[in-house]
Simulated scan of single mutants.
Amino acid sequence: MAPTDTAAPLLEIAHLRKHFGSGPHPVRAVDDVSFTIRRGETLGLVGESGSGKSTIGRLLTRLVDPTNGQMRYHGGPVPQDLAQLSQSQYRPLRSQIQIIFQDPYASLNPRMRIREVLAEALDTHGLAKGAARLPRIHQLLEQVGLRPEHAERFPHEFSGGQRQRIGIARALAVEPQFIVADEPLSALDVSIQAQVVNLLGELKEQLGLTLLFISHDLDVVEYLCDRVVVLYLGRVMEIAPTEALYATPQHPYTQALLAAAPIPDPAQRRSIALLQGDLPSPANPPSGCVFRTRCPQAEARCASADMQLHEVAPGHLHACWKTAPSHPAP
């Protein structure tokens, strides 16, 4: 079941930044991002390519280090700021925080049998030792819809969908609480995507997982996620429960993003103009609202607009001054 609005937070991200390069114009991949991931929910992270979605996933798993900001993790008896931990301090948490990579072809070692791929994860964290090892590997394969005999095969002997299932099994091997699914469908055929989406939903319910689902497929996000965070050029444009976001998007960027989704009825006309042009350079983002150079509703004051999120309805926040109330969201 989806968590309630009062569900305890598992992760609290506050003013998170990741800048690549030095000098006066570093690449601002993630720039002052704040949101909460509630325990037991599936949170969608959407936006165009280059918006910073995958960088946030890699920051939360500490595959890259943040420039500054906080990532408070409530998975243990004492909350820990993941941003302040060294790699050695973070290592014990890797069994609790896992990632499913975008490319199932590149994320598996082609020289290792699947049994060895899964055993490597178990060995790293001292799990399922001795006689318990092989039964645990078979259990993981069956959990993701594969057969025990698949443990003896190499990655090249599997289809793309099967390889992604193996990637999911590897993430589950260490019994995590939180999983970052980084565009897990983008390398798969459309016919296979629905199977993997359903598998993720079933595993989340069965194991009580919390998911950050990073995707550009808005239909899948609507189906799978409880809430959605919309990113543009490393900044948060809107946060809302999924139903509210799709029914009444508040930010002009969210409206344009949803309008760009394919319409199955050729007779139906779009009510919102599609965006023109590409994202500005993250090394030199626009002043004020970073979306203003492509926004069909932009005005002169947008060049100095406040980019802080404001609440327009319970749990529904966005960063556009036009419909924002006079008080910022807490």
Rank of each mutant, 00 (worst) to 15 (best):
G201N: 10
E222K: 09
L172Y: 12
E152I: 12
S186M: 05
L209C: 05
E183G: 04
G130P: 13
Y223W: 10
E183I: 11
P184I: 05
R165S: 04
L140P: 04
L118K: 15
L118H: 02
G167E: 01
Q143I: 08
I168K: 03
Q162W: 11
L211P: 01
G201K: 11
L218K: 12
V174W: 11
F213Q: 00
R147N: 14
D189Q: 02
I214E: 03
D226T: 07
G126A: 07
L146W: 11
F213M: 01
D182N: 11
V174Q: 09
T124D: 06
P148D: 15
I214W: 03
Q177V: 05
S215P: 06
A132Q: 13
A181Q: 04
K204N: 04
S191R: 08
S215A: 14
L146F: 13
I168N: 01
R170K: 14
G160H: 02
L172D: 12
G160I: 02
R165G: 12
A121T: 02
T210C: 07
P184E: 02
E152D: 15
Q164G: 14
R115H: 14
G161Q: 00
L212C: 11
Q206M: 15
A151K: 01
V228H: 09
L203N: 04
V228R: 12
L188M: 01
L172F: 10
Q206H: 05
E142Y: 10
S191M: 07
D182L: 12
L118M: 12
E205G: 13
Q139H: 08
H156P: 06
L185K: 10
A121F: 04
G167N: 02
V221W: 08
Q206W: 13
A131L: 10
Q143M: 13
E149R: 15
V174I: 11
I166T: 02
Q195H: 05
A121I: 03
G208D: 11
V220P: 00
R115D: 15
L122G: 08
A181G: 05
G126R: 06
A128K: 07
I137N: 09
D219V: 15
T210M: 08
D217Y: 03
F158K: 01
L134K: 12
E149V: 05
V197I: 09
L199W: 07
E116Y: 02
V117D: 02
L146N: 12
D226N: 10
L207Y: 06
G126V: 09
L207F: 15
N198S: 07
H125W: 06
I137S: 11
G208P: 08
D182Q: 05
R227F: 04
G145R: 14
G126E: 06
L134P: 08
F213W: 01
L140D: 00
R170N: 09
G126D: 06
E183T: 01
V221I: 13
L211G: 01
I168E: 02
I137Y: 09
L134D: 14
E205H: 15
A121D: 01
L140Y: 10
R227P: 03
V228G: 11
C225M: 07
A119W: 00
M112H: 15
A194V: 13
R147W: 09
A181Y: 04
I192K: 00
D217G: 06
F154A: 14
Q139P: 07
G160Q: 00
I168W: 04
R115T: 12
H216E: 00
H216D: 01
A169K: 10
I179Y: 06
